[in-house]
Amino acid sequence: MQILFDNLQVLFQGLALGSIYSLVALGFVLIIRATNVVNFAQGDFAMLGAYAMVMFFTGLEWPYWLAFIASLVAMAIFGVIFNYGVYYPLRHRSFLPVIISTLGASIFLQNTVLAIFGPQPRPMDKVLAADGITVGGVFLDSQYLVILAVTMAMVLFTYVFFEHTLLGKKLQATSQDKDMARLLGIPVALMISITFIYSAVLGGLAGVLVGPILFVSIGMGSIIALKAFAATIIGGFGDVTGAIVGGLLLGVIESLAAYHISVPYKDAYAFLALFIFLLIRPSGIFGEKVSEKA
């Protein structure tokens, strides 16, 4: 019985951790679809969100909820700046200059934060003061519960937004054929801006949520981004559902393997999973669903 509880406990933690990967992976995929470019600064969105929280909550001592909202608003503004500073000037170039530009942005962001906040990792408060609850022998940590709930809400919101609003359809149209979207009068630059805003907020949210678990550090974004990137490949490159499922799967695999095999190699399991997927199903779980007709 205890073994079952322990496994459920690990599964629960894995899903929560996986939710973080899913949020960042979702941001990845939205930008890939809108611009055909992998944004290497995606993980730094999470790092920035977490530091924004540190600044508003710990630094300025704003109430938690206000600091939370302010961090997300700051990330939205940052999304616009990132779009116009990193992507927009290179939008007519091939993907390579843009990728290098996002890599440069990543280095720049990390060093800027280092210069302002210093190298010391920062602790962060949990969203809820309560420790958690025990359900049938399984302890559910409150922060993990919050992560799961917020992720579920965001996934639901994203689904409704993209599938049931005209704006969502215009965003999709933009990612599928920019020139045609333009011919229909869809403001393509604005659509891409919205994508970056959304993506930055998703990343920032992931950072604020995971902060209390991982500590807030300069490098936190890099490791999250690597996992999230692996999740997008496992899920099917560029697939929205795939990103979410891939993230959750990766979190679960990682947690179970860490519990049953060995903790120090925790990060390695994610990449082992990626490696196995690339060997047996390189198109990912949801890959090749939509093929294009000539």
């Binding site: 359809k169 215009k170 999709q172 149209a173 011919l183 009068g185």
Partner: peptide, 27 residues
């Protein structure tokens, strides 16, 4: 001015109805 270009340029991942609806994006 509405341009129906060569090659049709249907949005492959949107439904037929959604494709039509987006035709009004200029209004």
């Amino acid at each position: 001015i509405s341009h129906v270009p060569e090659g049709r340029r249907i949005f492959p991942g949107l439904t037929v109805r959604e494709n039509i609806l987006l035709g009004a994006s200029n209004r």
